[in-house]
C-alpha cells in the first residue's frame, strides 16, 4: 500500500478516513493537522500515532508539519510598536481621567 518514491503531504483534502485497523500513509497524512492540533477522537489519534511512530516516511513528515505550526505560532505572535497609537491611547486615557474627576 505504501509507496517509497512519494513522500507524504500531497493530500489536497482534509477529509477522509479508513476502516481497516492499520492506516496507510495517505490516511495518516490526511489527518496530520487534526492530529497535531489534538482534535482527533482519541481512538483515531492513537491509530495515527501508532502509524507515525513506526513509519519512516511519515515520522519526518509529521515532524516537519509540527515545526511549521510551532514556527507560525512563535513568529506570528510578534508584538508591533506604533508611536502614533501610543500617543492616541495616552490622550484617550487622559480624557477619560479628566472626565471622571
Amino acid at each position: 500500500m505504501t509507496n517509497d518514491e512519494q513522500p507524504p503531504g500531497d493530500a489536497v483534502s482534509p477529509e477522509g478516513g479508513g476502516t481497516s485497523d492499520e492506516l496507510s500513509c495517505e490516511e495518516a497524512a490526511r489527518n496530520v493537522f487534526e492530529y497535531l492540533d489534538g482534535e482527533l477522537p482519541p481512538d483515531r489519534s492513537e491509530k495515527v500515532h501508532r502509524h507515525v511512530e513506526m513509519c519512516r516516511r511519515c515520522y519526518p513528515y509529521f515532524n516537519f508539519e509540527r515545526a511549521f505550526l510551532d514556527y507560525v505560532h512563535d513568529r506570528g505572535m510578534r508584538p508591533a510598536r506604533s508611536a502614533e497609537l501610543e500617543e492616541r491611547l495616552n490622550r484617550l486615557l487622559k480624557d477619560l481621567e479628566d472626565r471622571e474627576r
Binding site: 512519494q6 513522500p7 503531504g9 489536497v12 519526518p60 513528515y61 516537519f64 509540527r66 515545526a67
Partner: peptide, 21 residues
C-alpha cells in the same frame, strides 16, 4: 488546489525536520 499541497515533498531531501522555516 495547486497552492494546497504541503511543501514537504519539495523539501524532504534537504530538510526533513523543518529547520528551513
Amino acid at each position: 488546489e495547486v497552492a494546497e499541497r504541503s511543501v514537504y515533498p519539495q523539501l524532504h531531501e534537504e530538510d526533513a525536520e523543518g529547520g528551513f522555516f
